[in-house]
Design a protein around this nucleic acid. Sequence first.
DNA 1: ACCTGAACACCGTTCAAGT
DNA 2: ACCTGAACACCGTTCAAGT
Lengths: 174, 174
Amino acid sequence: MLAAARARVDAGDLELPMNAVAKEAGVGVGTMYRHFASRQELLEALAAESFRDLVREARDAAANPDIAAGLTGLIRATLRRQLTDPALAWVLASGDVEHADSRGLLAELLATAQHLLARARAEGAIRADVTPDDLRRLTCGIRYAATSGGDAGPAALDRYLSILMRGIQPGAGA
Amino acid sequence: MLAAARARVDAGDLELPMNAVAKEAGVGVGTMYRHFASRQELLEALAAESFRDLVREARDAAANPDIAAGLTGLIRATLRRQLTDPALAWVLASGDVEHADSRGLLAELLATAQHLLARARAEGAIRADVTPDDLRRLTCGIRYAATSGGDAGPAALDRYLSILMRGIQPGAGA
DNA sequence: ACCTGAACACCGTTCAAGT
DNA sequence: ACCTGAACACCGTTCAAGT
């Protein structure tokens, strides 16, 4: 069931028609709905593994004694995981997560970012007004910029990441 | 017909079901399809007016003798128009424009940006590697960051715009 | 020439009926 | 208890039939 859905997502299709997935999984539509109340929950279930990996990477990044490196690591990881797993990108962008597990993962990701941001702020390594939710939204935005309406390619992605990193630096003199 | 579609978009619905719009416009579905070959063309037609306004603003910005102000003006305008007209945001993000008029407008917008970027580069007012298409993608990304999954509010929008502007500045020492 | 809307193929979601 | 799939309400798109 999740395998059938995963096959579709990996094939670049995020639509995930419940009827079609059910048939491919050799199961009735009703069973589908008994396990996943909505398409959103199905996507969250699909993204769960990547999400757990991301949270682990985020914790590692936050533990880095070199704060600048930690911040870069956090943002890079969030961005890369979104590009690797479109389902995760969708879940992260959608703000209101439905399943308890995903909500927990999101809360932990934001808490980790909060922690890292506090340290970075204390050292003047980041603009004072950037929040964890900003990082979530901005990485989703960069992902969107790099992929929406035709892939922009890896060079462009690096460019956007670099622009974001520079953009959140504290002002030179202001 | 366009009025009926506009009413829907203004009510926050970008779905624009052809059948429903046709009925609301008091017209058969076939007529709908005779005027707009696809939903995309309908959206482009809807966005045309905002698009023309944007191109005009972009030209004004590019004509500004103060290059930094011109660059800010261009980006602000592109962002604001997208927020005002979701149809325009959709068209700008979708990359491959279908209708000749929209294609012309997009080409002109990018040419104007190219012109401004060349001047800005010459004065060292911007990173050398930023292209017009980057500006298009990045403003779409910021729009996405600020609105996707619940509106982030005007303060966040200003923050993201500021981050983008700072991010495309040339490196201090690098 | 232009328009209509029935018709087909789809998809989300529910729920009576089966095991 | 769990599962199935027909059934309903939709939407995109086409095209024979009307004016």
